[in-house]
Protein backbone atom coordinates (compact mmCIF):
# COMPACT_ATOMS: atom_id res chain seq x y z
CA UNK A 1 0.00 0.00 0.00
CA UNK A 2 1.23 3.50 -0.79
CA UNK A 3 1.94 5.94 1.99
CA UNK A 4 -0.99 8.07 3.07
CA UNK A 5 -0.99 11.74 2.03
CA UNK A 6 -2.86 12.75 5.13
CA UNK A 7 -2.80 10.86 8.37
CA UNK A 8 -4.48 11.57 11.67
CA UNK A 9 -3.19 9.67 14.71
CA UNK A 10 -5.11 9.33 17.96
CA UNK A 11 -6.49 12.86 18.04
CA UNK A 12 -8.15 14.01 21.23
CA UNK A 13 -9.89 17.29 21.93
CA UNK A 14 -12.24 18.11 24.78
CA UNK A 15 -14.26 21.23 25.39
CA UNK A 16 -14.74 21.00 29.15
CA UNK A 17 -16.48 17.69 29.84
CA UNK A 18 -17.45 17.23 26.18
CA UNK A 19 -15.17 14.95 24.22
CA UNK A 20 -15.52 16.51 20.79
CA UNK A 21 -12.81 14.33 19.28
CA UNK A 22 -12.13 11.05 21.02
CA UNK A 23 -9.13 9.06 19.86
CA UNK A 24 -9.69 9.58 16.14
CA UNK A 25 -7.29 8.01 13.65
CA UNK A 26 -7.73 7.94 9.91
CA UNK A 27 -5.72 7.98 6.70
CA UNK A 28 -6.18 9.43 3.24
CA UNK A 29 -4.30 7.61 0.51
CA UNK A 30 -3.43 8.77 -3.03
CA UNK A 31 -6.29 8.53 -5.52
CA UNK A 32 -9.04 7.82 -3.03
CA UNK A 33 -12.10 9.55 -1.74
CA UNK A 34 -12.50 8.91 1.94
CA UNK A 35 -15.92 9.99 3.16
CA UNK A 36 -16.55 11.06 6.70
CA UNK A 37 -20.16 10.75 7.73
CA UNK A 38 -22.00 11.05 10.99
CA UNK A 39 -25.08 12.65 12.52
CA UNK A 40 -25.20 16.34 13.39
CA UNK A 41 -23.04 17.15 16.38
CA UNK A 42 -20.85 14.08 15.85
CA UNK A 43 -17.73 16.28 15.73
CA UNK A 44 -17.10 16.39 11.99
CA UNK A 45 -16.44 20.11 11.90
CA UNK A 46 -14.21 19.87 14.97
CA UNK A 47 -12.18 17.17 13.24
CA UNK A 48 -11.83 19.31 10.12
CA UNK A 49 -10.72 22.21 12.30
CA UNK A 50 -8.05 19.97 13.84
CA UNK A 51 -6.85 18.78 10.45
CA UNK A 52 -6.77 22.26 8.91
CA UNK A 53 -5.07 23.79 11.94
CA UNK A 54 -7.83 26.03 13.27
CA UNK A 55 -7.92 23.99 16.47
CA UNK A 56 -5.06 22.51 18.45
CA UNK A 57 -5.57 18.97 19.77
CA UNK A 58 -5.11 17.97 23.42
CA UNK A 59 -3.24 14.92 22.19
CA UNK A 60 -2.46 13.19 18.91
CA UNK A 61 -0.84 14.11 15.62
CA UNK A 62 -1.69 15.30 12.14
CA UNK A 63 0.72 14.23 9.40
CA UNK A 64 0.85 15.64 5.89
CA UNK A 65 3.01 13.68 3.41
CA UNK A 66 4.54 11.90 6.37
CA UNK A 67 5.54 15.15 8.07
CA UNK A 68 4.14 16.09 11.47
CA UNK A 69 2.26 19.38 11.05
CA UNK A 70 0.47 19.32 14.40
CA UNK A 71 2.35 22.41 15.63
CA UNK A 72 1.88 24.38 12.40
CA UNK A 73 -0.74 27.05 11.76
CA UNK A 74 -3.44 27.12 9.11
CA UNK A 75 -1.34 29.00 6.54
CA UNK A 76 1.65 26.68 6.93
CA UNK A 77 -0.55 23.61 6.41
CA UNK A 78 -2.07 25.24 3.33
CA UNK A 79 1.40 25.87 1.95
CA UNK A 80 2.27 22.25 2.67
CA UNK A 81 -0.53 21.25 0.31
CA UNK A 82 -3.78 21.06 2.25
CA UNK A 83 -6.77 22.66 0.56
CA UNK A 84 -10.04 22.93 2.41
CA UNK A 85 -13.43 24.20 1.45
CA UNK A 86 -15.81 25.60 4.00
CA UNK A 87 -19.25 24.39 5.00
CA UNK A 88 -20.60 27.93 4.90
CA UNK A 89 -19.03 29.51 1.84
CA UNK A 90 -16.10 31.67 2.92
CA UNK A 91 -15.28 33.66 -0.18
CA UNK A 92 -14.42 37.36 -0.33
CA UNK A 93 -17.82 38.84 -1.26
CA UNK A 94 -16.49 42.12 -2.68
CA UNK A 95 -13.99 40.44 -4.99
CA UNK A 96 -14.93 39.00 -8.36
CA UNK A 97 -14.93 35.27 -9.06
CA UNK A 98 -11.66 35.69 -10.95
CA UNK A 99 -10.09 37.69 -8.12
CA UNK A 100 -11.08 35.10 -5.54
CA UNK A 101 -9.53 32.27 -7.53
CA UNK A 102 -6.46 34.38 -8.40
CA UNK A 103 -6.02 34.91 -4.68
CA UNK A 104 -5.95 31.15 -4.18
CA UNK A 105 -3.32 30.78 -6.91
CA UNK A 106 -1.33 33.55 -5.27
CA UNK A 107 -1.55 31.80 -1.90
CA UNK A 108 -0.04 28.68 -3.39
CA UNK A 109 2.66 30.44 -5.38
CA UNK A 110 3.54 33.30 -3.07
CA UNK A 111 3.99 36.87 -4.22
CA UNK A 112 1.41 38.55 -2.01
CA UNK A 113 3.98 41.19 -1.19
CA UNK A 114 4.29 42.49 -4.75
CA UNK A 115 3.03 46.01 -4.26
CA UNK A 116 3.04 47.61 -7.68
CA UNK A 117 2.34 45.00 -10.31
CA UNK A 118 -1.16 44.75 -11.57
CA UNK A 119 -2.50 41.49 -10.22
CA UNK A 120 -4.94 40.76 -12.99
CA UNK A 121 -2.62 41.61 -15.87
CA UNK A 122 -0.33 38.83 -14.65
CA UNK A 123 -0.99 36.17 -17.29
CA UNK A 124 0.38 33.31 -15.23
CA UNK A 125 -1.93 34.22 -12.36
CA UNK A 126 -5.13 34.77 -14.33
CA UNK A 127 -4.39 31.86 -16.66
CA UNK A 128 -4.15 29.40 -13.80
CA UNK A 129 -7.23 30.92 -12.20
CA UNK A 130 -9.29 30.77 -15.41
CA UNK A 131 -8.42 27.09 -15.90
CA UNK A 132 -10.13 26.25 -12.62
CA UNK A 133 -13.02 28.64 -13.24
CA UNK A 134 -13.68 26.90 -16.56
CA UNK A 135 -13.60 23.52 -14.85
CA UNK A 136 -16.29 24.37 -12.34
CA UNK A 137 -18.35 26.07 -15.06
CA UNK A 138 -18.25 29.67 -13.86
CA UNK A 139 -16.57 31.09 -16.97
CA UNK A 140 -19.44 33.38 -17.84
CA UNK A 141 -19.61 34.65 -14.27
CA UNK A 142 -15.93 35.48 -13.81
CA UNK A 143 -16.34 39.24 -13.36
CA UNK A 144 -19.30 39.01 -10.98
CA UNK A 145 -18.62 39.86 -7.32
CA UNK A 146 -18.66 36.64 -5.30
CA UNK A 147 -21.27 38.17 -3.01
CA UNK A 148 -23.73 38.34 -5.92
CA UNK A 149 -23.44 34.66 -6.83
CA UNK A 150 -26.28 32.21 -6.29
CA UNK A 151 -25.74 29.63 -3.58
CA UNK A 152 -24.79 26.78 -5.89
CA UNK A 153 -22.39 29.00 -7.81
CA UNK A 154 -20.70 29.99 -4.60
CA UNK A 155 -20.19 26.32 -3.71
CA UNK A 156 -18.52 25.86 -7.09
CA UNK A 157 -16.35 28.92 -6.48
CA UNK A 158 -15.30 27.34 -3.16
CA UNK A 159 -14.19 24.29 -5.09
CA UNK A 160 -12.39 26.31 -7.77
CA UNK A 161 -10.41 28.05 -5.04
CA UNK A 162 -9.42 24.74 -3.46
CA UNK A 163 -8.44 23.45 -6.92
CA UNK A 164 -6.36 26.55 -7.63
CA UNK A 165 -4.20 25.78 -4.64
CA UNK A 166 -2.89 22.74 -6.56
CA UNK A 167 -3.03 20.80 -3.29
CA UNK A 168 -1.73 17.41 -2.18
CA UNK A 169 -4.97 16.69 -0.34
CA UNK A 170 -8.49 18.13 -0.33
CA UNK A 171 -10.63 18.43 2.75
CA UNK A 172 -14.11 19.31 1.54
CA UNK A 173 -16.73 20.23 4.11
CA UNK A 174 -20.16 19.49 2.65
CA UNK A 175 -19.50 20.72 -0.89
CA UNK A 176 -23.07 19.87 -1.89
CA UNK A 177 -24.84 21.53 1.01
CA UNK A 178 -27.91 23.38 -0.20
CA UNK A 179 -27.49 22.38 -3.85
CA UNK A 180 -30.37 21.18 -5.94
CA UNK A 181 -30.36 17.63 -7.42
CA UNK A 182 -28.87 18.82 -10.72
CA UNK A 183 -26.13 20.75 -8.98
CA UNK A 184 -25.37 17.80 -6.73
CA UNK A 185 -25.08 15.50 -9.75
CA UNK A 186 -22.66 17.85 -11.52
CA UNK A 187 -20.64 18.21 -8.35
CA UNK A 188 -20.47 14.42 -7.96
CA UNK A 189 -19.04 14.07 -11.48
CA UNK A 190 -16.52 16.81 -10.77
CA UNK A 191 -15.37 15.28 -7.48
CA UNK A 192 -15.00 11.91 -9.16
CA UNK A 193 -12.48 13.48 -11.58
CA UNK A 194 -10.74 15.39 -8.83
CA UNK A 195 -9.56 12.34 -6.95
CA UNK A 196 -6.93 11.80 -9.61
CA UNK A 197 -5.36 15.13 -8.80
CA UNK A 198 -5.33 14.72 -5.06
CA UNK A 199 -7.23 12.49 -2.64
CA UNK A 200 -10.33 13.90 -0.99
CA UNK A 201 -11.48 13.72 2.58
CA UNK A 202 -15.16 14.33 2.01
CA UNK A 203 -17.60 15.36 4.69
CA UNK A 204 -21.04 15.11 3.18
CA UNK A 205 -24.66 14.59 4.16
CA UNK A 206 -25.84 13.57 0.69
CA UNK A 207 -25.76 9.78 1.07
CA UNK A 208 -26.34 9.08 -2.62
CA UNK A 209 -23.22 11.04 -3.46
CA UNK A 210 -21.21 9.44 -0.66
CA UNK A 211 -22.14 5.92 -1.71
CA UNK A 212 -21.36 6.73 -5.35
CA UNK A 213 -18.01 8.38 -4.73
CA UNK A 214 -16.38 6.97 -1.65
CA UNK A 215 -13.71 4.28 -1.72
CA UNK A 216 -13.83 4.15 2.04
CA UNK A 217 -16.23 5.55 4.61
CA UNK A 218 -15.58 6.37 8.23
CA UNK A 219 -18.53 6.90 10.56
CA UNK A 220 -18.12 9.44 13.31
CA UNK A 221 -20.53 9.36 16.27
CA UNK A 222 -20.03 11.42 19.44
CA UNK A 223 -16.45 12.19 18.53
CA UNK A 224 -15.47 8.54 17.94
CA UNK A 225 -15.03 6.63 14.72
CA UNK A 226 -17.37 3.67 15.26
CA UNK A 227 -16.78 2.02 11.90
CA UNK A 228 -14.56 2.34 8.89
CA UNK A 229 -14.60 0.37 5.66
CA UNK A 230 -15.86 0.08 2.11
CA UNK A 231 -19.31 1.20 1.06
CA UNK A 232 -20.62 -2.39 1.24
CA UNK A 233 -19.13 -2.97 4.69
CA UNK A 234 -20.57 0.25 6.08
CA UNK A 235 -24.01 -0.46 4.61
CA UNK A 236 -24.00 -3.87 6.19
CA UNK A 237 -22.70 -2.74 9.58
CA UNK A 238 -25.52 -3.05 12.15
CA UNK A 239 -23.96 -0.55 14.54
CA UNK A 240 -23.87 2.06 11.80
CA UNK A 241 -27.44 1.36 10.83
CA UNK A 242 -28.74 2.01 14.31
CA UNK A 243 -26.49 4.96 14.97
CA UNK A 244 -26.89 6.75 11.73
CA UNK A 245 -28.40 5.20 8.66
CA UNK A 246 -31.55 4.31 10.57
CA UNK A 247 -32.20 7.95 11.24
CA UNK A 248 -31.74 8.73 7.59
CA UNK A 249 -34.35 6.21 6.57
CA UNK A 250 -36.90 7.65 8.93
CA UNK A 251 -36.64 11.05 7.24
Amino acid sequence: MTDPVLEVRNLHLSFGALKATDDVSLTLCPGEIHALIGPNGAGKSTLIGLIAGNLAPDAGQVLLNGRDVTAQDVAARAQAGLARSFQVSAVAPGLSVLQNVALAVQGARGGSFRLFRRALSDRALTGAAMTQIDRVGLTARRTVPAGDLAHGERRRLELAMALAQAPRAFVLDEPMAGMGPDGAREMTTLLDELRHEAPILLVEHDMDAVFRLADRISVLVSGRIIASGTVAQIRANPEVQTAYLGEERLE
Partner: peptide, 21 residues
Protein backbone atom coordinates in the same frame (compact mmCIF):
# COMPACT_ATOMS: atom_id res chain seq x y z
CA UNK B 1 -1.66 44.74 -6.99
CA UNK B 2 -1.33 41.17 -5.70
CA UNK B 3 -0.73 42.78 -2.32
CA UNK B 4 -4.00 44.72 -2.55
CA UNK B 5 -5.84 41.58 -3.62
CA UNK B 6 -4.50 39.61 -0.66
CA UNK B 7 -5.30 42.49 1.67
CA UNK B 8 -8.87 42.73 0.39
CA UNK B 9 -9.20 38.99 0.88
CA UNK B 10 -7.82 39.24 4.40
CA UNK B 11 -10.35 41.97 5.18
CA UNK B 12 -13.38 40.22 3.69
CA UNK B 13 -12.67 36.57 4.46
CA UNK B 14 -9.76 36.23 6.92
CA UNK B 15 -10.34 32.52 7.63
CA UNK B 16 -10.30 31.71 3.94
CA UNK B 17 -7.15 33.69 3.24
CA UNK B 18 -5.30 31.81 5.99
CA UNK B 19 -6.60 28.54 4.52
CA UNK B 20 -5.06 29.61 1.20
CA UNK B 21 -1.66 29.88 2.86
Amino acid sequence: SPFGLALAGARQAPARVAALG
